[in-house]
């Protein structure tokens, strides 16, 4: 037995986070230098450091940078939300969309498309839809005064199914030319991404708040009663978790539609390889999620260019083998 596993672990955690941050930076450079228009590393440096109005500069500043930063933020939000949702529901199969947030957002967005509103109103309505879902599920799961993860999960899953029906209904009565825009909300796509200004603020606040809850979260994994016995105020913590996860998901869905798979798998890959300490897991999930989505999006737009692939396809292509490999190698089990 090594005398100080704890301090060693802290150093190791720092190293992991540093490596993941470097990976994010690497993916960002890769994303900015790959695409239909050739931009080399030195070109990129010139474009960033000098003030010019060349085609390359336009492509980097107007197209690639907003999209890359959006991918980072959305990926980080989804992975973080997935991680929180899995603890809240104590269910390894939980993902950010399981409680119907994306359904609410999609209905909001589809409604604006059908009404012929502009893209700003669409984002706003998507966010409002997500918030309506948040309050609806919370209110319903809460009404009898007996709040439990199972009750919450059931309420959320059924509400999500309800949204699904509304979406199908809207799709079947919508006009042909509206369908293109509607499919976006169901598939998830970063091509319409803008610079993620206010969304990155949402992300940073949620990350800090959830990080502050990290140690109680570790206790929650052992069950509500156990957490209570060790001095966690379980009920406020659950509400906090629910709000944080929903807010993150709503923000992500508003930017890029519902990109599947990422929020489910990234936290699991990290749990299997780094352990279950949320003080490491939460920031690591955010970094890894951002990195994975950015890489996937870069591949999606360059792999068979000029044809563009749905980013969800690539996240699955990368995520599935990585997850299965980690699952095989890991000596930690999943219950």
């Amino acid at each position: 037995m090594i005398p100080s596993t704890v301090s060693q672990q802290q150093q190791r955690n720092l190293l992991y986070l540093l490596l993941l941050a470097l990976a994010c930076l690497g993916s960002l450079v890769l994303a900015l230098t790959s695409g239909s228009i050739e931009i080399s590393l030195s070109d990129l440096w010139q474009v960033i450091t000098t003030d010019q109005t060349s085609l390359q500069s336009t492509v980097v500043h107007e197209l690639r940078l907003p999209r890359a930063l959006s991918a980072l933020i959305v990926g980080a939000q989804l992975a973080l939300a997935g991680c929180l949702m899995q603890v809240l529901l104590r269910n390894p199969l939980a993902d950010p969309y399981v409680l119907g947030v994306s359904g609410g957002a999609a209905v909001g967005a589809l409604f604006s498309i059908m009404m012929g509103l502009g893209s700003f109103a669409m984002s706003a309505n998507a966010f409002i839809g997500a918030m309506v879902n948040l309050l609806l599920v919370f209110g319903l799961a809460h009404s009898q005064g007996s709040w439990s993860p199972t009750r919450l999960l059931l309420t959320g899953v059924v509400t999500a199914a309800g949204w699904g029906a509304v979406i199908s209904f809207m799709l079947s009565i919508s006009q042909d030319h509206q369908l293109t825009g509607m499919v976006f909300w169901l598939m998830g796509d970063l091509s319409r991404a803008q610079l993620p200004g206010q969304h990155s603020l949402v992300f940073i606040i949620c990350l800090l708040l959830s990080w502050a809850l990290a140690r109680p979260l570790n206790l929650m994994l052992r069950g509500e009663m156990q957490a209570k016995a060790l001095g966690v105020s379980v009920y406020p913590l659950q509400i906090g978790l629910y709000l944080l996860a929903s807010l993150l998901t709503a923000s992500a869905v508003t930017q890029a539609g519902s990109i599947g798979f990422l929020g489910l798998v990234v936290p699991h890959i990290l749990r299997l390889s780094l352990g279950t300490d949320h003080r490491l897991l939460l920031p690591a999930s955010a970094l890894a999620g951002g990195c994975l989505l950015l890489l996937a999006d870069t591949l999606a737009r360059t792999l068979i260019a000029p044809q563009q692939l749905p980013v969800g396809v690539i996240t699955a292509f990368i995520g599935v083998p990585v997850f299965l490999w980690v699952l095989q190698k890991s000596n930690r089990g999943l219950v």
């Binding site: 596993t5 899995q86 603890v87 109680p216 009663m225 999943l334 219950v335």
Partner: peptide, 21 residues
Amino acid sequence: LQDEKNAFPATVLETALQGRH
């Protein structure tokens, strides 16, 4: 407590350390 199930298992040392919370 009587039996409680773990959703995501931690190590023995991590679990014992949780007593310090």
